[in-house]
Design a protein around this nucleic acid. Structure first.
Length: 333
DNA sequence: AACATAGGCAACCGCCATATA
DNA sequence: CTATATGGCGGTTGCCTATGT
């Protein structure tokens, strides 16, 4: 009955991953592609649970992951998406392909939550000084409700559904406007976002890329230097180690360090398993993820792209956030 | 300089939906 | 159809580092 166990729990190693383990995992995935995690520990000899391997790959080793400080734009997007989607970090991360859900979640918990709390506190004091807090903004409502540990999942889901429906309504309104090509002209009254008259001027380079398509073909190829960095650290940390460095991984480090990302697709099952052959795999995995999990059935694909454009447009974003009816705390940033 | 505390982050845990035998 | 494993996700923990006393 059922499937065989992925790994025996006995002898499974826990805790931080060593560079050696990372390299073994990376080279294995480079050869076989991500997925089929159950076979990873047995084939690599890693004494890790398959789940742990998958997590390590998706959260740290996967090419294209951007680490370090979040930009102001990313921060705004997270705030906005969190207000819209709640703590659905994977869904939020799908809009920030360079960031992992874990990263976003951590950033939210360590930075943004405090920031919001601060703002809410100041807002509360403002409200107590004369404003009626019955009709609080949607942003605050959502934030507090999603964060509230007491709120049931059912409530949360209903709220999310309401939010999405409102966004959908707003999109329908926007699409009936004369110039649907210009997503920044959306007005989202139900969300408390004021009408926009801002032009869709250019955004940052990364944003521009994502504006056109949230999942550009080269998104993972764009920064695989974390693998190279890993190898560098590995070399630095264990200069005398005689661990057999997989050829593929070495080539990859050299390739990523030296060359710009390849834009060619590569033969999915080819012999040349370059690092960038992951692109097609990841891309194929991520694209439907967004549509299936987030707004599927609510927004058509055409509308979705407009929605995303709107979402990714920094200008409109600034406007939106500034117009979020935060009842006396408009100045968020 | 030594200790205490707080913050950040990687990794684990547990649940759920889905796949599979 | 049932039982069980897998993959995915969000919540939480615990270690490490930075900062304060």
């Amino acid at each position: 009955m059922g499937r065989p166990p992925c790994c025996d729990k006995i002898g499974v190693k826990k805790g931080p991953w060593t560079p050696e383990e990372d390299i073994i995992l990376v080279s294995y995935i480079q050869e076989h592609g991500p997925g089929n995690w159950r076979s990873v520990p047995t084939h690599t000899g890693l004494r890790r649970c398959s789940k742990s391997c998958r997590l390590r790959w998706t959260n740290y080793l996967r090419p294209g992951i951007k680490r370090g400080n979040f930009t102001e734009h990313e921060e705004k997007m997270i705030l906005h998406l969190q207000a819209l989607l709640g703590n659905r970090w994977a869904a939020i991360a799908s809009y920030l392909p360079e960031r992992t859900d874990n990263d976003i979640k951590n950033y939210w918990n360590t930075h943004l939550k405090k920031k919001l709390k601060k703002m809410n506190d100041s807002c509360d004091s403002t409200i107590n000084n004369g404003l009626d807090n019955k009709d609080f903004s949607i942003s605050n409502k959502n934030t507090t409700s999603h964060q509230s540990s007491n709120s049931s999942k059912g409530q949360w889901e209903r709220r999310l559904q309401t939010d999405i429906n409102m966004a959908k309504q707003a999109l329908c309104d926007a699409l009936s406007i004369d110039k649907p090509q210009n997503p920044t002209n959306f007005s989202i009254p139900d969300l408390g976002y004021g009408p926009s008259s801002s032009s869709s001027s250019t955004t940052t380079t990364t944003t521009t890329t994502r504006n056109t398509n949230p999942y550009p073909s080269g998104v993972y190829a764009s920064s695989a230097e974390n693998i190279a960095r890993l190898l560098q650290n590995f070399m630095k940390d264990t200069p005398k180690t005689s661990v057999l460095l997989p050829v593929a991984a070495t080539e990859m480090a050299i390739t990523t360090a030296a060359s710009s990302p390849s834009t060619t697709e590569g033969d999915g099952e080819g012999i040349d398993h370059s690092l960038f052959s992951f692109n097609s795999i990841d891309e194929a995995e991520e694209k439907p993820k967004l549509i299936d999990h987030d707004i599927n059935g609510l927004i058509t694909q055409g509308s979705l792209s407009l929605f995303e454009k709107w979402l990714f447009d920094e200008q409109s974003h600034d406007m939106i956030i500034n117009n979020m009816s935060l009842e006396g705390q408009e100045v968020l940033f």
